[in-house]
C-alpha cells in the first residue's frame, strides 16, 4: 500500500520508488483535489465534495498524489501531473468506488471494454482492461477491493505503472 513519507527529509536525485518521494505536506483543508481520470485539477472544485473525508496531499518528483479517505473506508488516490492533469487513479476499500465518477469520460470506454472481454480465463479473475488509451485493473474480493486506472501515454517520464497503487 502506498505510504506517504511522513517527514520533510529531502532525498535528491532520481531514486527508485518509494525513494522518489521527496517530501510531503498534509493538507486537511478544502483543497480542490477531486477529479476524474484525464480531468484538469484546476477546473474540478465542484467535484471535491463528492467523497467527503480526510485529504492528504503528497508531492513526488513527477507528480502530486491527492489521497482522500472517506468515512466508509474507501481510499482514493489521484495522481496529478505537473501540468495539472489527473493521469492515474488508485483505490482500495471494502467495495469498489463509483467508477463513473472516478473515470469520467473514460467510464463508457471502460464498460465497453469490460463487456467485450473474451477468451480463455477472462471471466473469473482480476479485471484487466488494457487499451492504447486506458488501463484499468481491479483485484481483490468482496470486502476488499484494490484497483487502479491510468492513461498510459500521459504517465510522466520515469514514472511506471507499478508506482500507481
Amino acid at each position: 500500500m502506498f505510504k506517504a513519507q511522513s517527514t520533510s527529509r529531502r532525498r535528491l536525485g532520481p531514486k527508485p520508488w518509494p525513494l522518489l518521494v521527496i517530501g510531503s505536506l498534509f493538507a486537511m483543508a478544502s483543497l480542490p483535489a477531486w477529479a476524474a481520470l484525464g480531468g484538469d485539477l484546476s477546473t474540478v472544485q465542484a467535484d471535491q465534495v463528492h467523497m467527503r473525508g480526510s485529504l492528504r496531499t503528497t508531492v513526488a518528483a513527477a507528480y502530486t498524489v491527492h489521497e482522500i479517505e472517506s468515512t466508509s473506508g474507501v481510499v482514493v488516490r489521484e495522481y496529478v501531473s505537473s501540468a495539472g492533469k489527473v493521469f492515474a487513479i488508485a483505490w482500495q476499500g471494502p467495495w469498489p468506488p463509483d467508477m463513473r465518477q472516478l473515470l469520467g469520460s473514460y467510464f463508457d470506454p471502460y464498460i465497453q471494454a469490460a463487456r467485450a472481454r473474451s477468451g480463455p480465463g477472462m471471466a473469473r479473475r482480476p479485471l484487466m482492461i488494457e487499451q492504447p488509451g486506458l488501463v484499468v485493473q481491479v483485484g481483490g474480493h468482496p470486502r476488499s477491493f484494490v484497483g487502479r486506472a491510468y492513461i498510459p501515454d500521459q504517465l510522466p517520464s520515469n514514472v511506471t505503472a507499478e508506482e500507481i497503487r
Binding site: 477468451g119 480465463g121 488494457e130 485493473q137 483485484g139 481483490g140 476488499s144 507499478e162 497503487r165
Partner: peptide, 26 residues
C-alpha cells in the same frame, strides 16, 4: 492485502514480469 481464492484463475501479484498484451491482458 493477500488472500487465498479458488475463484481467481492464477497467481496474481505485483511484478515487472512481461505481460501478454491484448491477447491475454494482465
Amino acid at each position: 492485502e493477500s488472500f487465498l481464492d479458488t475463484g481467481s484463475n492464477g497467481y496474481f501479484f505485483p511484478s515487472t514480469i512481461t505481460q501478454c498484451g491484448s491477447q491475454a491482458p494482465g
